[in-house]
Structure formats: C-alpha cells, structure tokens
Amino acid sequence: MSTPASATAEQKSELAARYGLDQPLIMQYGHWLAAVAGGDFGISMISRQPVGTELLARLPITAELTVLAVAVSALAGVPLGVLTAVRARGGRDPGGGGAAGRLLSGLGVSVPEFVLGSLVVFVFSRYTLGLEVGAWVPFTQDPAANLATLVLPAAVLSVFAISVTARTTRDAVMGVLVEPYVTAAVGRGESPWFIVRHHILRNAATPVVTLLGTIIAYLLGGALIVEHVFNLPGVGSYIVQAVGRRDYAVVQAGVLLAAAVFIVMNVLIDLLVGVLDPRLGVLAGRRS
C-alpha cells in the first residue's frame, strides 16, 4: 500500500472506514470503550498486531524496571532520611543533612531523566566500565545478564525518587521524634537505633508509604523516557514510538493502562496505610 503522504483519496477513505475514523468522535469513543470492556484494545496501525498482545509482551520489562527503581528508592532514600533526621535531632547536624545533602537532593529533583540518561549512555558507551547500554537480555534467557542491563536504567529512574523519599522520610521522622513515647524511651535508656526500629519507623511510615505509591505512578511516566534512551523494548518505548507514528490505538491503550495502574496502586496504598496505622481506619470509620 502507498505511504500516507502519497495515498490516494480512495485509499485514505478505505483506511478511515477500516479503523472507524470516518465516524463522529463520540461514536468512536463509545465503540472503543465497548471493545476495551471485552478485552479488545484494537489493532496497531503500524505492526497490524493486536495492541493487547503487544502490551502484554512488553509489560514484564517495564514492571521489572519499575520494581527495581522503587526498591532502589526505598533502600537508599529511607535510611538516608532516617540518618539525617536522627543526626539533626541529636545536635550533631543542626542543618539536617548539611549543605552537601541538600545540594545533592536538589540536583536529584531538578535533573530530568533524559538529561541524566543521555549522560550515562554517553559515559558507559565511551568508556569500558563493566556495564553495557543498549543491549537487552530477557530474564528467561540469562537472569544475571538481564539484571545487568537494567542496573543503569533503574539507577537513572530512581534518582528523583531517592531524593524525594529521603526528604519525606526525614520530615516524618523529625515529627515522630518529638512525641512523648520517644522521650519516655530515651528516659528509659534505650539505644537510639533500638528506638528507631521499635518506636519511629512504623509511626513515620505512613507518609513514606503514601509517597512511594505516588512515586510508582511517576516512575511509570519516567519509564517512557528511560526505556527510549536505553533502548529497552518495554511499554514505555512502545508508547513513545506510537506517539511519533500516530498509532492512536497504542497510545489510547497505554494511557488507559497507566491510569489503571495509578488507581490500583492508590487503593493498595490506602489499604496498607490502614494496616500500618489502625488509627487512620478508626478515624475514617467515625467520619463515615
């Protein structure tokens, strides 16, 4: 078939009728919703393959990248926030992390993923540093090599999340440290890290867990750019390519998938927060 730029009027009409583009927008949207309810996300205009099948094939890659980035964010950001809060409360660091910590946090929040990702790709492509970029190895083929290909993308994707998590954790811990039960624990002679483990972490976890739920949605959006920069065949790069090619069925399905993940994560986070702090569940019950 001729390219869209050189297609005849008959060919354009045929394509419009095939994909329902000759109908009013409200009817197109209604037909699409009815098809989605039946599990049909449409056919890609470029590959001529079912969009649902293409998304399912790429979803494990994006999910693995997001899980690794969230794990890195939690494992690095939470301890860093707790450490700076305890040091500030103990008088050893009145600034709460010092100028260096605030500078790094500011840089982590302000540097876009595509800038940091492009820099990482250049450095690791220019110099032999033990990790390759642009090479994807499926997990079923070689788990170790698969994780090696995701180390750099996950690190780039988690920089912003680490900075925000550390800052939120620090503020939450600082708020808990002034509670009377912490003062009583100090008066009993309990060690600082025993107090942190048994009295502070769970009580300070609510805002941190809520933030992590929001970060997951943010990371899914950032994965579009990171996957494209690192040439990962995930959902993100698939949607970016679809936008450039005006493959509307893929873009619609990608937006719907992102919205569904965001809603499900928020519901799960609300349930988890109620488990971590039963007082919130009791308060919600009284209000209702």
Rank of each mutant, 00 (worst) to 15 (best):
A100K: 11
G101E: 08
R102A: 14
R102K: 12
R102C: 06
R102L: 10
L103M: 11
L104A: 10
S105V: 12
S105W: 02
G106W: 07
L107Y: 00
L107T: 09
L107P: 01
G108F: 00
V109S: 07
V109F: 09
V109L: 05
V109G: 08
V111F: 08
V111S: 01
E113I: 04
F114Q: 00
F114N: 01
V115F: 06
V115C: 08
L116I: 05
S118D: 02
V120G: 01
V123W: 12
V123C: 07
V123F: 13
L129R: 11
L129P: 00
L129F: 09
G130E: 09
G130Q: 10
E132W: 13
E132Q: 15
W136F: 15
W136I: 07
V137Q: 11
P138G: 09
F139H: 14
F139V: 07
T140I: 11
D142L: 14
D142M: 11
A144C: 13
A144L: 13
A144W: 15
A145T: 04
L147D: 11
L147N: 09
A148W: 13
A148T: 03
T149L: 03
L150H: 02
L150Q: 05
P153V: 02
A154K: 06
A155S: 09
A155N: 03
V156H: 02
L157C: 10
S158Y: 03
V159W: 05
V159N: 04
F160P: 14
F160C: 11
F160I: 14
A161K: 03
I162Q: 01
I162K: 01
I162A: 01
I162V: 10
S163A: 11
S163W: 00
T165D: 05
R167V: 11
R167Y: 01
T168H: 06
T169S: 09
R170T: 14
R170Y: 08
A172H: 03
V173G: 03
M174D: 14
M174T: 15
G175K: 04
G175T: 10
G175S: 13
G175M: 06
V178T: 14
V178R: 12
E179L: 12
V182E: 07
V182P: 10
T183N: 12
A184D: 15
A184Y: 12
V186R: 13
V186C: 14
V186M: 14
G187Q: 13
R188Q: 08
R188W: 07
R188H: 10
R188P: 08
R188N: 10
G189R: 12
E190L: 14
E190D: 14
E190I: 13
S191P: 04
S191W: 04
S191M: 12
W193I: 06
W193T: 04
F194N: 14
I195S: 10
V196C: 06
V196S: 08
H198W: 15
I200K: 06
L201N: 05
R202Y: 05
R202I: 05
A204W: 02
A204F: 05
A205M: 02
A205K: 01
T206F: 01
P207R: 04
P207V: 07
P207H: 01
V208G: 00
V208F: 08
V208D: 01
V209G: 02
V209C: 07
T210Y: 11
L211G: 10
L212C: 04
G213S: 03
G213E: 02
T214C: 14
A217S: 12
A217Q: 08
Y218R: 10
Y218S: 15
L219D: 06
L220G: 03
L220C: 03
G221A: 00
A223S: 08
L224E: 06
I225T: 05
V226E: 00
V226N: 01
